[in-house]
């Protein structure tokens, strides 16, 4: 429950990580089933925590993509039915855009134009935002998302799922230059896209090589070196874009934005560029309803209402492309 796009009244999250852990990743059918079980109870819990009656709701926002179509359909179907039953406007929110709007819930004054870096298990996108609803993707990953590579490396090291927090923790005690991993597309100044599959292969090869030679993989060093390679690319590409588009603010978003090394490094580098970095608190970095509520509020102000024909769009692009 979000008031006027800025104030969180409640933000209830039912995480499925436990459910998917033994499969080493999200199983779409299992996720869809669980979402359907949880969606109505979680709506009631959010209302109760906010002290709001269902009939007091003034609008509903729903994420309609990108993502797993089965999961999206549960949300979209529920939201359309609920909005019709309550006779309130419905807004369809791009999930990625939702991540960006988590920053509007931080209380910091936000000044357009600005730059956003969305990094999660599904996305790595650098976005130029001129105003609400005016977003241009400057670069995106050509293969794996940053968070996805964290998960895959974690799986190869049997660190469990999701992999980000485990790797970040191990990396704290490691030597970030112990292994030299590639930083793809780094030298190419004109290029704002990302590529992480080469890095993933290099890391997996290192793990195999160490094992073949009978050496104990020095987990801390490997994690620190891997994390540094990801962070370096993210930070340098962002710095490049910040300079080229002369922005004053950078909004970090997505699950990987909770990574403390990324935050630290980004703050340092952006300070040099004179750019203010805004990061949501960790609980607003991972997927949550409040960020969708914030984005929906600004969509409503622009009169962007969804039709009853609204469908889930698994590969929804941010600039409508």
């Amino acid at each position: 429950m979000v008031l006027n796009g800025r104030r969180i009244l409640s933000n209830v999250i039912s995480s499925q990580d436990d459910l998917h852990r033994r499969f080493g990743g999200v199983v779409p059918e299992i996720a869809s089933r669980r979402h359907l079980e949880m969606i109505n109870p979680i709506i009631d819990e959010a209302l109760a925590r906010a002290g709001v009656a269902l009939t007091e709701l003034e609008a509903i926002g729903v994420s309609y993509g990108p993502g797993l179509v089965g999961s999206l359909l549960v949300g979209v179907s529920t939201a359309k039915a609920l909005a019709y039953a309550l006779d309130v406007p419905l807004m369809a929110v791009n999930h990625l855009e939702g991540h960006i709007y988590a920053n509007f819930l931080t209380g910091v004054v936000i000044v357009f134009p600005l730059l956003c870096l969305v990094v999660s298990g599904g996305h790595t996108s650098l976005i130029y935002m001129q105003n609400h609803g005016e977003l241009t993707v400057l670069g995106r990953t050509r293969d794996d998302a940053a968070g996805e590579v964290f998960d895959k490396v974690a799986r190869a090291l049997s660190l469990g799922f999701p992999g980000g927090p485990a790797i970040a923790k191990l990396a704290q005690g490691g030597d970030a230059v112990a292994f030299s991993f590639p930083r793809a597309l780094m030298g190419e100044e004109w290029q704002m896209d990302f590529s992480f599959s080469g890095l993933k292969t290099a890391v997996l090869n290192s793990i195999r090589r160490e094992k073949e030679q009978g050496r104990q993989v020095k987990l801390e060093d490997l994690c620190a070196s891997f994390q540094a390679a990801v962070v370096d690319v993210l930070v340098e590409k962002t710095a490049l874009a910040a300079r080229r588009y002369a922005v004053r603010q950078l909004l970090l978003a997505g699950g990987v934005a909770a990574n403390s090394e990324l935050r630290r490094s980004m703050f340092c580098r952006m300070e040099e560029e004179g750019v203010e970095v805004i990061v949501p608190p960790p609980q607003l970095c991972t997927d949550n309803g409040a960020m969708i509520g914030a984005a929906a509020y600004f969509a409503l102000r622009r009169g962007r209402l969804a039709e009853p024909t609204l469908n889930a769009v698994a590969n929804l692009m941010i600039d409508g492309a």
Binding site: L36, L54, G70, L73, S77, A81, A85
Partner: peptide, 20 residues
């Protein structure tokens, strides 16, 4: 169809929820 089932059930639950 798993997906079809979910669309129907989610819609029915959403309507029932909203209309009490």
């Amino acid at each position: 169809s798993f997906t079809g089932i979910r669309i129907g059930v989610a819609t029915a639950r959403g309507l029932a929820h909203g209309l009490s």
